[in-house]
Design a protein around this nucleic acid. Structure first.
Lengths: 346, 346
DNA sequence: CTGAAAGCGCTTACAG
DNA sequence: CTGAAAGCGCTTACAG
């Protein structure tokens, strides 16, 4: 049973392909009786218009692409992405668009970009630009960059990472902590922390500014900065490593993401620590989980879902109106809950 | 700057379109010098092959579609889907495929199916078949149904929902509970529980079988069966409603999904209940969160990620070999942790 | 090793 | 209200 095409329907119904096309896409162009007949024939023969052929002429796919910095399985291990995608999804639904998840192809985003049949891309967490922007331009599809360092002529959505991070660290320092472990998000490119760019660099800078305000240098021996995967397991493993190594155990952990903080928190509980008495923890993101855990996680709120919404909305606008290039920088805010206390006397 | 096409490159490089196509897709067909020249010209002119036009002739999109029963934002509120997608994503990555999330279009899956440009669909949680299967067949793309009642000639992946549910309820009954609230997953179609089909019907049947073994009828006044959205909020709200209504408060809650159980658990904590002493709770899914909460959730394990993997693998196989129609029924297993105890004396 | 030509299955001015 | 024809941008036998 080979695929049935518009020509066969046209022939069977005794009309032109034009008529068949109209019957599906713009019935008002046809006499009601004709439409009825065509649809009846199409139904009987099991015809459904080929979406690719349609895209070929309309130049529309009705899909948005989400360019992911990592494989789907890895990215979705972080609830941040789930939230973010929910934001995009909300806009997709109301715009009648579909969402394509586009992870690196054979380890390369560059390879993935040319193949995705989408009307626009939202690019998230592109840490280092190795030509992705150039390639995206060639595709002649609109794109918006989220949590990435975007050129001026590319739409972008960011948050005040630096300010948020600064507030988080300042809060911990204000409570009296001086021996602190900073759990940074792994750059993925296995690069040194010194080479951070974009979001990661901003957050790190924020932490350092707060330390600096207390006269503490980032390389102070009481401050240990480590890179960990942004996942529950990453946070858990990091806590264990730190706690076991422990020339001098930190009294507080400052994490670049909630999921890392949550992992560390659970690991600490498993070791019998009482939080926050024995160890203070602060995160970043304010995922729904942050509010639910005990002790409730003190963290930096950022509008994750809204970032997704905005990104998708910018794209949708570009598809129809082709509006101006926008740059958004959304606020962040420290949310003080229960996971940070004064350090216990040593 | 209009899009540059293969013809322009051919002209500029002084070769045929065939040669340009080969340079990108099968360079071995061309003299190395020719390839170099073509690629150089393409690079200079900013050419990138149009993926739609390519799909048009190759009849391949290199994308898998995931047909979701609800909007993306709603589905992803349930970690089950995140896990499931991670499974699909793992296979997509290794097969070099992209993943398209296809939610209902204007409230209708039927409308969404014809438009998605994918090589195959995984259909999940299709509760009632209102023609989706027929439409999918017309598309002439392979598809596999997960957690749905599939016809014999359609590949399917299910788990032992009934057995798992029976074990969960039996465990609660064995502890001595007789006053139980059953939190069912809302069918979405706003249908009555009596009209459940597929996964939901199986789980409900499993619960009832266990009750029956204890001589309890499903409509026993001590057993209340309610429908709730499968989300944290759904579980939370359900607990509050039940606790407040409370002619006779249940001593145990049996939930059809972990996320519902988790929501109920947190709501119970918020009311000052001590779990499991004051209230026992059992879930279904065994999400990663189940192990982490306190008390750790007793629940029915099912291989969520593996279902995604398998589904995608079946599709990938169908794309290349067109293998036979497979039906998988994976096992489930009650995982006893800490959230179920004997009911306190009243 | 390279090119001319047909074809993939639609949509859309345009003409009647 | 309906149809003939061109065209979307590629790939792929086929011929040379």
């Amino acid at each position: 049973m080979p695929k049935v095409t518009i020509s066969q329907i046209a022939r069977a119904a005794g009309v032109s392909k034009t008529a068949v096309s109209f019957a599906f896409n713009d019935p008002s162009q046809l006499a009601p009786a004709t439409v009825r007949r065509i649809l009846e024939v199409a139904d009987r023969l099991g015809y459904t218009p080929d979406p690719i052929a349609r895209s070929m002429t309309t130049r529309r796919t009705n899909a948005l692409g989400l360019l992911l910095p990592q494989d789907i399985a890895i990215a979705l291990a972080n609830p941040f992405y789930t939230q973010f995608i929910r934001g995009i999804g909300a806009v997709c639904s109301s715009a009648g668009l579909t969402l394509m998840l586009v992870p690196p192809l054979q380890g390369s985003l560059l390879k993935a970009i040319p193949h995705a049949t989408v009307d626009g891309f939202v690019v998230v967490g592109l840490e280092v630009d190795r030509g992705e922007v150039r390639l995206l331009r060639r595709r002649h599809v609109p794109f918006v960059m989220v949590d990435s360092e975007a050129p001026d002529d590319v739409a972008s959505i960011n948050v005040d990472d630096r300010g948020g991070a600064r507030a988080a660290m300042a809060h911990v320092l204000a409570q009296g902590h001086r021996c602190i472990a900073v759990l940074c998000i792994e750059s993925g490119k296995d690069g040194r922390i010194a080479e951070y760019t974009g979001t990661l660099a901003e957050r790190l800078a924020g932490y350092c500014e707060a330390l600096d305000a207390y006269g503490i240098a980032p390389d102070d021996p009481a401050i240990q900065i480590v890179e960990v995967p942004s996942s529950w397991e990453g946070g858990q493993a990091a806590f264990e490593r730190i706690w076991d190594a422990a020339a001098r155990r930190p009294t507080a952990i400052v994490a670049m993401s909630d999921i890392i903080a949550l992992g560390a928190m659970d690991a600490a509980h498993a070791r019998g620590l009482r939080l926050p008495a024995d160890l203070s923890i602060v995160g970043f993101d304010d995922l729904p989980e942050a509010r639910r855990v005990r002790p409730a996680l003190t963290t930096v709120w950022q509008p994750v879902e809204e970032k997704g919404c905005l990104a998708a909305a910018v794209l949708v606008a570009a598809l129809t109106e082709g509006g101006p290039i926008v740059h958004h920088r959304l606020p962040t805010e420290l949310v003080i809950r229960e996971s940070v206390a004064v350090p216990r006397d040593e």
